[in-house]
Design a binder for these strands. Structure first.
Lengths: 204, 204
DNA sequence: TGATTTAACTAATAGTATTAGTTAAAATAA
DNA sequence: TTATTTTAACTAATACTATTAGTTAAATCA
């Protein structure tokens, strides 16, 4: 039921290779021809692993979203409150910096509304909701706030990647100021300049 | 010095056509073949108007950025303070909604760091700086805040376009809450829950 | 008028994804 | 063990891209 022929490529190996191409040369260079060359096979052989170029892009998008989630979840361990929000935020933008091509792939899914793609993204949303729970936001407001945090993180990363911030002004400082301001404005238990109440973990 | 041969296409006509294709079918369908077909000419003829596909993408990006700027500038006429920030914000996301393909084109420039592309974007930044001046932010802080506003607007538009907000929660309301919270947190003259000086619509 | 400019064209090339059909190696069943 | 099945690779061919080179003819200008 699962033979291991000549080369025995598995999907992870293929996606790792595709991710390397993306990070080094950009998503427009992630072609079946380039990927096959890197793997030492012929382009049609790739069809045994995914459904053509759209299939590759979808799988690479999910692969990227999951990697971002992992780094965010890891960053959220052992911290809480505003500190936790800042930690997952840093993890998000740092992933986009370290893996610009994979981050780009995240937005390259042929159908962003695809069930599996949405499902992968939902984990990030859920994590954000949990981290923001310290603010004790009433029902709907919590969801609006998550939308805001996601908008900030994606917008900031995307603009930074495209060279949208050209002034010589520290980028990490901008991000911290932006998020702290947003959280302060939302009005949770945290205050912009004040101390962080306590230090135990919130993570479910 | 400027003959008017057979058809006499000018760049604006071409970009309008390309924009229509983008809005209807997405940027991946903006090919020289499709564009030429829509214009009634042969693909190689397009090379008389721009430098290949990368040239088209660059010009279309600038075209889109300028259109966004125009709508934002128009929305800023006759309003001030927080109201003005909300007005240009609505104009921005509404443009992305009405012209998803052209908005996509905005991010499709082959070299986002290109001088002309940056110059077009700078007008939006300048407008934002002016509109935010009511908050009397000290030097650097003003720039951080502009980065934040741009991140929110681009991130929100991009996520909305990709179906990233799947909950049945009013999108305009989210945007207003997010921006008001951000401005409140920055600490300007306005407050989140307090009355808006002007008096009309607050929480959408 | 004649010369020049240039926006269209045809023809050809290289690169792309993709499909169809084939081969052979590995896993499984007997 | 041998036989069967599965499947990951392959070759060959097709249809689409963008792109270049060289040509034609219409509009402008001197």
């Amino acid at each position: 039921m699962s033979p291991r022929p000549k080369i025995g490529l598995d999907l992870t190996t293929i996606l790792d290779a595709a991710g390397e191409i993306a990070d080094q040369y950009g998503m427009q260079e992630v072609t079946l021809a380039n990927l096959a060359k890197k793997l030492g096979i012929r382009p049609p052989s790739l069809y045994n692993h995914f459904e053509g170029l759209p299939g590759l892009r979808k799988k690479l998008a999910i692969y990227g979203i999951e990697k971002i989630y992992e780094e965010m979840a890891d960053a959220a361990i052992g911290v809480s409150g505003t500190e936790a929000v800042l930690a997952i935020s840093k993890a998000y933008v740092n992933f986009a910096r370290k893996h610009p091509g994979i981050y780009e792939a995240t937005l390259f899914a042929p159908d962003p509304g695809d069930k599996e793609v949405q499902q992968a993204g939902a984990k990030i949303v859920d994590l954000s909701v949990r981290v923001l729970q310290v603010h004790h936001l009433e029902g709907d407001l919590a969801l609006h706030v998550v939308r805001g945090l996601r908008s900030i993180l994606h917008g900031f990363s995307s603009l930074e990647q495209r060279g949208g911030f050209k002034l010589s002004l520290d980028l990490d400082e901008s991000l911290m100021i932006i998020i702290k301001a947003f959280l302060t404005g939302i009005g949770g238990e945290q205050s912009f300049t004040g101390p962080i109440p306590n230090g135990d973990q919130n993570r479910s």
